[in-house]
Design a protein around this nucleic acid. Structure first.
Lengths: 206, 206
DNA sequence: AAGTGTGAAAAGTTTCACAGCG
DNA sequence: CGCTGTGAAACTTTTCACACTT
């Protein structure tokens, strides 16, 4: 049940199971079978059981899984039981939309602050999140022990911004720019490339 | 070199290579080695060569690849040489930001129109893209032979909206909602789950 | 000599099928 | 009996290493 044993893709799916379980719990459901939970999560039953087995034996044969305790166990395995502080860099078009997006907080993340180069955007909080000048970023990261950043700057500034983030202790970057980021060993980058997703989609359409 | 032979992930990477090649071409570079191109794309040289080999023998041993013709070949393989029409459903917070996002057009996609339920948003074009009432969506899809849609509605409406899209002939959905969409065989869904990406990122931080 | 193209090995992931437990 | 947990099989993707071409 060590982290190193969890396959990459299982991490994603466990998050999905967590959501489905919260939903079931809200509806007062106490037990669920791999069949039903897997259907809700959009995977096959065997996949679900295999994924859960990485977290230990959690179900009862013949009966299924207890909803609440399963949710809590997954929370612990993923380490998502504590509220992770995050900063956002680049409060432009997409960045502002992400600040307003409620989905992050709902899943346990708080965007503490945003940073931008454009003085016009600074000091105008977006949806309760303050927007500061990028020169104040290093101090902020250190003071608030921030480990994760959402990167939404123009592509031309992406690598520079990433370097600065890493230099100040950021260990994980959620990259919304189409740039290929080069970061040192130990820093994790998850890239969400919007145009790439559309392009790959279009390939599979006849 | 048939579509069925292209591994899923190679499709993504070929798009990235295309971008890198465009950049090289803009800089007047005429030939590039797998070593250099792979570095720009953030993959290993062997991976690049393997990916390109799915498209046929394209390089010259001892010399590398011709930048322009390689770019054109990949364009043809991916089928991205024509401008794909797309619609966007749900012109809320995230949807509006995506309408303003220039990255799609740059990669050959045009968002013809957006649709929303909220009458307030209707008839106010966002960045030259008209926003219509959802009731006009079926006719629009048919008339403009649209095959792809970007889905940004509230999660509670996601499955309904997807059903409606599919009913009217949409074959590919880029899903920005956290819902698990159930669609018939033959319809492709690419999901971009923002909170999930953050969550998976946080798992890998110590 | 330089650098592609590619079989084959390795690694990672999904699916199967069924033993075994409550 | 019903349903989980899991080895083993099947499949996919990545990496290696080197033959081969210009």
């Amino acid at each position: 049940m060590l982290k190193s044993e969890l396959p990459r893709k299982a991490v994603y799916r466990l998050s999905i199971y967590q959501r489905c379980l919260s939903l079931l719990q809200d509806n007062g459901v106490e037990r669920v079978s791999s069949e039903d939970l897997s259907k809700a999560a959009g995977v096959k039953p065997a996949q679900l059981r295999k994924d859960l087995s990485y977290c230990g034996p959690l179900g009862t044969r013949g009966l299924g899984y207890p909803v609440e305790s399963l949710r809590i166990t997954i929370e612990k395995v993923l380490g998502s039981h504590r509220l992770q502080p995050v900063i956002l860099v680049g409060a432009g078009n997409l960045g502002s939309a992400l600040l307003r997006y409620q989905g992050f907080r709902k899943e346990g993340f708080e965007i503490l602050a945003a940073f931008d180069q454009n003085p016009g955007k600074i000091k105008t909080p977006i949806e309760h999140t303050p927007v500061y000048d990028v020169v104040d970023m290093p101090a902020f990261i250190t003071e608030n022990k921030v480990k994760m950043a959402i990167l939404c700057v123009p592509v031309a500034n992406a690598q520079d911004a990433a370097n600065q983030l890493v230099q100040n202790g950021i260990q994980g970057i959620l990259n919304f720019t189409p740039a290929v980021l080069h970061v040192p060993e130990g820093v994790v980058v998850n890239s969400v490339d919007l145009a790439l997703e559309l392009e790959s989609l279009s390939y599979y359409i006849r």
